[in-house]
């Protein structure tokens, strides 16, 4: 179990958090304008990287806030943590 530094609460154990998949996938503002393929791209297509991955996490057993985490999926090293709406760091 790894440790995650919640940007609101500080360092906590992984069991307090819920993983929310890939980060920075914005819900289209006008879904009705999209073709099936474009909608499918948003709906289904997710990266599954061995290495640096940008992810959403939720402090579900804490402050219940969503935030972003940059994690190396090969060794669970967390490179960066930042709030929703903030610019992703360059890593």
């Amino acid at each position: 179990m790894f440790l995650i530094t919640c940007p609101f609460c500080g360092e906590r154990e992984q069991s307090e958090f819920k993983a929310g998949g890939e980060a920075h996938i914005e819900r289209p503002k006008q879904p009705t304008e999209l073709s099936d393929d474009e909608w499918a791209e948003y709906l289904f297509m997710r990266k599954n990287i061995k290495g640096i991955q940008f992810e959403r996490w939720n402090h579900s057993h804490g402050c219940r806030k969503w935030f972003n985490v940059v994690r190396d999926t090969s060794n669970d090293e967390i490179k960066s943590v930042y709030k929703m709406g903030e610019k992703p760091p360059t890593i």
């Binding site: 819920k18 929310g20 914005e26 939720n58 579900s60 929703m84 709406g85």
Partner: peptide, 13 residues
Amino acid sequence: LGKLEDYLQTEWP
């Protein structure tokens, strides 16, 4: 509850 919170915090702040 989790789903509503998710949308409120991330898509519709």
